[in-house]
Design a protein around this nucleic acid. Structure first.
Length: 759
DNA sequence: AGTCCGACTTAGTAGTTACACA
DNA sequence: TGTGTAACTACTAAGTCGGACT
């Protein structure tokens, strides 16, 4: 399997963010020009709607939505019918890895237990009882009681657990808190339940319902604009000018970014200036007509001084701010969902500012407008205490949709997309989904060989669309490419995934570096990260590619008979719940598992084993092309480490010399005391050796990690149970692999995976 | 069949904090 | 006792995917 997946290290070395690569830049610039011409009209059309009018259209959207919901609620029979049908379909799909019959009777039990939340946050007793998720209560022997967490489980659940987790014994609680300090002690000790809620031992909703009760305090808005002092001046064309507060605020956004490269970019400046002018008074508008004549330098200096001052604050002042943040977190950072207090991921509304897209984004520099309560849709239980809008304001809407997971949403003005406030990854609602994702990937493991032989067969198909589909799937599987939805030109940076690859993104080499049939990929993927890879492929694939590229212009689609929706429909037929991204998850996780078993040597010490883990992790990151900008201080910190290593080596030599002389001494004297001295020296040598080893490992690890980001795969692609099992098997403390946040996110895996877990 | 859009996951980076070390 | 660096967190952009609508 993995032999199939040859991943070229050169990919990393040469890979770089588009902006950093000159060769690349030029290449893409050319293309952009070519594209531009036929984009123009479309763009003009678009921009008409981009700002004020957008609001109207989105309002309308929501009105329509309302209608729709109403319909659903008092439902005409036909609507209901349709809905039921839909939900059933969903249900059948939603529980990966669980036999269907277990799911069907979700929470039939009338048993309701009112379990007091062990903390009175948002307590609304009158509702709690009726809103508790229902469960059966008949398998008391499965798990030891804990005083206040859930103790009602069903037989089905017990079975399910057995099946999924095999023989999970109740564990001594993982005390993963020892290393944590102050803040932790404060909030955790008081607020956190002693026994953490194990949602993974409970029934799940089966019908598209995400919760039964939801209560929260709404979002925290960005602080209002704080005008700069009047002695900080703005100059236009050399003359001082007092700006209106609205125009001034936008000017400060620009001033704050002055040091950044993109304020020099034409598009950025153009977009900024256009949006800035919209905020000006007519007087200002008539005066300020050229951005180049604007002098923001005093503002810029002012903000720099401010940030210096912030750094130089006294301990007390810093503590005060910290305390205030903590208070805000406690008040707004949590919600109650189905009787459990859960952490919210992003409870602050995004503040206004200038949009910074990634890569060559056509909208960079545009003004991201301030979000007001009137823009906000609140989602919560009907019978919860609704969040109050700030004094004198109103929400746009309060709705009670328990088929979605978000608490708050608003429409952003740059792309017109919807932004959400949702729960933290440690929450039940995110965790269940995450777990499910890995179960789907594990199901793929069972049938991946079948799928592979099928697509290989399809390479020979008479039908073009099938060949294209098969070759694309091969890339997705072998190279872990993303699906590649088509995107609107001129709205975003020009990036592609598998289905949206263009002819210009690959070149074919009959022979290259002694290998036959090499495909050279060079394109910008998500976040404008460059994907560069030379891959030898099967002859049949190569021939197909030649065919697909025949008579096409560089900017034509490689797979002109394919898109993500066609591909995913096909995948759905091959396996329930299968989509393109499942391959990424599957290949990432299976690679980790293989690499770990290949690289780990049980004889080695803990740091060496961790190096092996990081290497396995790295193999995955390379596969998934997870890159990062090399840290700014990389070279220097590498040098520092080297000096340390040299010093350690010297120290080791010294220690060895001393040991030698001690030995000689002992030989002559033959007394206890000198024998002991030898022992001590021996120990010293050993200790220094270990330290040196540790440093060297660190150096290797860091060097190999220069441009590779491990975090993304660890967080999103690697089944945490693989890592947990590995830790247990080799007696590595889990803290060495996962930090606190990660342990919270993966609590389910840490609790359920034993050392023999197999992906 | 294609388009649009809502909901949700995946992504890199900027800024902050903790920590090691001279 | 500050300073440099690593680790972590917060932030938000940019994907995926399914379903409604046309």
């Amino acid at each position: 399997m993995s032999g199939d997946h040859s991943h070229n290290d050169s990919q990393i070395e040469s890979g770089s963010r588009y902006n950093d690569s000159h060769k690349h830049k030029d290449k893409y610039k050319d293309k952009e020009h070519r594209h531009k011409d036929h984009k123009k009209d479309k763009e003009r059309e678009k921009s008409k709607y981009s700002n004020s009018e957008h609001r109207d259209s989105s309002d309308k959207k929501h009105r329509d939505k309302d209608k729709e919901r109403l319909k659903l609620k008092d439902g005409s029979s036909s609507d209901k019918q349709k809905d039921k049908h839909k939900e059933k379909k969903k249900e059948e799909r939603s529980f990966d890895g669980k036999p269907k019959k277990e799911r069907e009777n979700g929470f039939a039990s009338p048993f309701i237990k009112s379990e007091p939340e062990n903390d009175d946050f948002y307590h609304s007793p009158k509702h709690e009882k009726s809103l508790k998720r229902e469960r059966d209560d008949d398998d008391a022997e499965v798990k030891p009681k804990k005083i206040k967490t859930e103790d009602d489980r069903s037989e089905k659940k017990a079975k399910k657990r057995k099946q999924v987790e095999e023989d999970i014994k109740p564990k001594k609680k993982t005390k993963d808190k020892k290393g944590e300090v102050a803040t932790d002690g404060k909030k955790k000790a008081k607020k956190e339940p002693e026994d953490k809620w194990k949602w993974w031992e409970e029934e799940r909703y089966t019908d598209g319902v995400k919760w039964k009760f939801l209560e929260h305090k709404g979002p925290v808005f960005a602080p209002p604009y704080d005008p700069i002092p009047s002695n900080v001046k703005f100059f236009y064309d050399g003359k001082q000018m007092k700006l209106s507060p609205e125009a001034e605020e936008v000017a400060t956004f620009f001033a704050k970014m002055l040091d950044h490269e993109y304020t020099t970019k034409d598009i950025f400046r153009k977009n900024f200036f256009k949006d800035w002018r919209k905020e000006m008074t007519s007087e200002e508008k008539s005066k300020i007509s050229d951005l180049n004549k604007c002098d923001f330098s005093e503002m810029s200096e002012y903000f720099k001084a401010q940030s210096e001052a912030r750094k130089a604050m006294t301990k007390e002042e810093k503590l005060k701010i910290k305390g205030e943040n903590e208070r805000l977190l406690q008040e707004y950072g949590f919600c109650v969902m189905d009787n459990h207090k859960e952490r919210i991921a992003n409870f602050r509304i995004e503040p206004p500012g200038l949009f910074r897209g990634r890569g060559d984004h056509p909208k960079m520099g545009m003004l991201k407008r301030r979000i007001r309560p009137e823009d906000i849709i609140v989602n919560c239980s009907k019978d919860s205490k609704h969040p109050k809008p700030p004094h004198g304001t109103k929400w746009k809407e309060v709705r009670h949709d328990n088929k979605v997971t978000w608490l708050v949403s608003w429409t952003e003005n740059i792309q017109g997309s919807i932004k959400y406030i949702m729960l933290n990854p440690s929450s039940r609602i995110k965790g269940e989904k995450d777990w499910q994702k890995y179960e789907t990937a594990r199901r793929l493991k069972k049938c991946v060989e079948r799928i592979r032989s099928q697509y290989r067969e399809d390479w020979k198909s008479k039908e073009m669309r099938i060949r294209q589909r098969a070759v694309a799937l091969y890339f997705i599987d072998k190279l872990a490419l993303r699906a590649g939805n088509e995107k609107e030109e001129g709205e975003t940076a020009d990036t592609v995934g598998c289905c949206s690859l263009r002819v210009e993104h690959l070149s074919l080499h009959q022979e290259m570096d002694g290998q036959e049939f090499v495909v050279e990929f060079d394109f910008l993927g998500k976040d404008s990260i460059r994907y560069y890879n030379k891959v030898p492929v099967e002859k049949r694939v190569f021939k197909n590619l030649q065919l697909f590229m025949e008579d096409k212009e560089p900017e034509d689609d490689l797979f002109d008979r394919l898109n993500t929706s066609i591909l995913n429909k096909h995948l759905q037929e091959l396996m329930d719940g299968l989509t393109a991204k499942v391959f990424r998850t599957y290949n990432a996780s299976i690679t980790l598992q293989q690499q770990l078993s290949e690289l780990t040597n049980s004889e080695e010490n803990v740091p060496a084993k961790i190096l092996s883990y990081n290497r396995a992790n790295r193999a995955v990151a390379i596969l998934c092309n997870h890159q990062r900008a090399p840290p700014k201080t990389f070279e220097k910190s590498m040098q520092n480490l080297q000096t340390k290593i040299d010093a350690k080596k010297e120290q080791l030599a010294d220690a060895k010399r001393e040991l030698k002389s001690a030995k000689a001494d002992a030989k002559v004297r033959r007394d206890e005391k000198s024998k002991k001295a030898v022992e001590t020296k021996k120990k010293a040598v050993q200790r220094v050796e270990e330290q040196l080893m540790k440093l060297e490992v660190q150096a290797t690890d860091r060097e190999e990690n220069k441009q590779i980001a491990l975090g993304t795969s660890k967080l999103n692609y690697l089944d945490p149970r693989i890592s947990v099992a590995w830790c247990k098997k080799f007696e590595i403390p889990i803290e060495k692999i996962y930090n606190k946040t990660q342990r919270e996110k993966f609590a389910w895996a840490i609790d359920m995976a034993e050392k023999d877990f197999e992906f």
